Simulated scan of single mutants.
Amino acid sequence: MGTPQALGGLPLAPVAPRPELAPTSPRVGEIITVARAVLEQEGAAALTMRRLGELLGIRAPSLYKHLAGKMQLETMLVDAALVETGDLLHGVVDRADAAGVLGDLLAAYRAHARAQPNLYRLVTAGPLRRDQLTAGVEKWAGEPFYRAMGEPYRAQALWAAAHGTVILELDGRYLPGSDLDQTWAALTAAFRRPVDDDRSG
């Protein structure tokens, strides 16, 4: 992924190429759009071929003319979501300076997850079927953390901390009355360090 850099050299320039998703037919595009709406509005349990057929006005078996099944549908949702997340976070990092990149990145990550919590859970829960995803999508989505940190393992730790913090928020697991803005500010402070710390050792 590269070598560590002092805070003054951050954020790093992008390295990962933006992946291009395979083109789909208009009908598949419509199915994916409806599936995403069902996922967010009705929950993961409602995301069935039968439910999609009802909303599209076709019999569920007819969906299999366009998709292999629910697993492929979920993979396509994850694929698109990873590209979308990468686009958003790369844009945030592109506009940020060294002092603000960490806070800006975490704020955008939190807001994006809160805006689509069920899609976020689909993307981040359980094993990732990497062999079925478009090449490069995972790297594209994750590289903004590396660009903000300048070191791969601190970047992974930052993403893990951000994920843990936001999934607890989405699931309502913090104590009542908790000031979650303060929690996120503490997370940002925990990963921010002065240039002198980076240069020591």
Rank of each mutant, 00 (worst) to 15 (best):
M1K: 01
M1Q: 12
M1H: 09
T3W: 13
T3M: 13
P4N: 07
P4A: 04
Q5H: 15
A6D: 12
A6L: 00
L7V: 12
E20D: 11
L21G: 04
A22W: 00
P26H: 04
R27N: 08
E30P: 10
I31T: 06
I31V: 15
I32H: 11
I32A: 13
I32P: 05
T33Y: 05
V34A: 10
V34G: 08
A35G: 13
R36I: 09
R36G: 15
E42G: 11
G43W: 01
A44L: 03
A46T: 10
L47N: 03
T48L: 06
R50K: 13
R51V: 10
L52G: 01
G53P: 11
G53C: 06
E54Y: 04
L56R: 13
L56Q: 07
G57K: 04
I58C: 14
R59W: 02
R59Y: 07
R59E: 15
R59F: 05
P61I: 01
S62R: 14
L63V: 14
Y64G: 03
K65I: 07
H66C: 01
G69S: 05
G69T: 12
K70I: 14
M71R: 15
Q72W: 06
L73M: 12
L73E: 14
E74W: 09
M76P: 06
L77T: 11
V83Q: 10
T85V: 05
G86L: 09
G86E: 05
L88R: 14
H90E: 09
V92K: 01
R95I: 03
A96H: 00
A96L: 01
D97G: 15
D97F: 03
A98C: 00
A98K: 02
A98H: 02
A98W: 10
G100K: 07
V101K: 10
V101L: 07
L102N: 06
D104G: 11
L105G: 04
A107H: 08
R110V: 12
H112L: 08
A113I: 04
A113W: 00
R114E: 15
P117G: 09
P117V: 01
L119M: 05
L119G: 05
R121Y: 01
V123M: 13
T124W: 03
G126Y: 07
R129H: 14
D131G: 12
A135S: 00
W140R: 01
A141H: 07
E143Y: 09
P144S: 05
F145W: 06
Y146K: 02
R147Y: 08
G150V: 09
E151A: 13
P152H: 11
Y153Q: 15
R154F: 13
A155T: 12
A155E: 05
A155H: 01
A157E: 03
T165A: 15
V166A: 00
V166W: 01
V166L: 05
I167E: 08
I167Q: 04
E169R: 03
G172T: 09
L175E: 07
L175C: 04
S178A: 13
L180C: 04
Q182L: 14
T183N: 11
W184L: 08
A185D: 14
A185N: 11
L187W: 02
L187K: 08
A189L: 07
R192V: 00
R193V: 09
P194M: 00
D196M: 02
D197H: 03
D197E: 15
G201W: 02
